[in-house]
Amino acid sequence: MRPLPELTAESSAFWTGGERGDLMIAFCDACARAIHPPQVVCPTCLSRSVTARAVAGTGTVYTCTVNHQPWVPDMQVPFAIAVVDVDGAPGIRVTAPVTGGDPAAVRIGQRMAIRFEPADGVWLPLWHRLGHDPDGEGA
C-alpha cells in the first residue's frame, strides 16, 4: 500500500483539486510567482497572500524514468513516472505516473495532459501523452 499525502494548509488545494479535474498550483498574489511544492509564504517577496489556481493541466516532459522494481507488495510494474514542466506555471514541475500505452515510449519533450484518481479523500495526479488514450494499451 502506497502512503497518501498528508493534507496541510499548503498542500490541500493540490491534492483535492482533482475532484473537479483541476490541477491546482499556488501563486503569489503580490508578485505572481508560481510556488511548488506549495507554500503559504512566497519565497520571492514573503507575501502571505498565496492562492491556488487551476492551470490548464498540460505540460511537457522534462525527465522520466520507468520503474521496474515492485517496492511494495502488489505494485504493478513496469510503469513510467514523468517530471513535467507545467503550462502556465513557469519554473514549476508536477511529477506523476504515466498511464496509457507502453511506459518505455515516454520521452523528454512529449506533450502531456493530466487527470486524477481518487484515493481515500485525496486525488492523485496521473499524466498521459496528449492525444493518446489514457487507458489504452500498446505503444
Binding site: M1, R2, P3, P5, T8, Q69, W71, A96, V122
Partner: peptide, 20 residues
Amino acid sequence: AGKAQIGGWLSWLVPVGAMS
C-alpha cells in the same frame, strides 16, 4: 513504506509512485 500518510518533501514523491 507501511505508513498510511506521509508529509514533507517525501509527500511529493512517494504518493505519486516514486517510492525509491
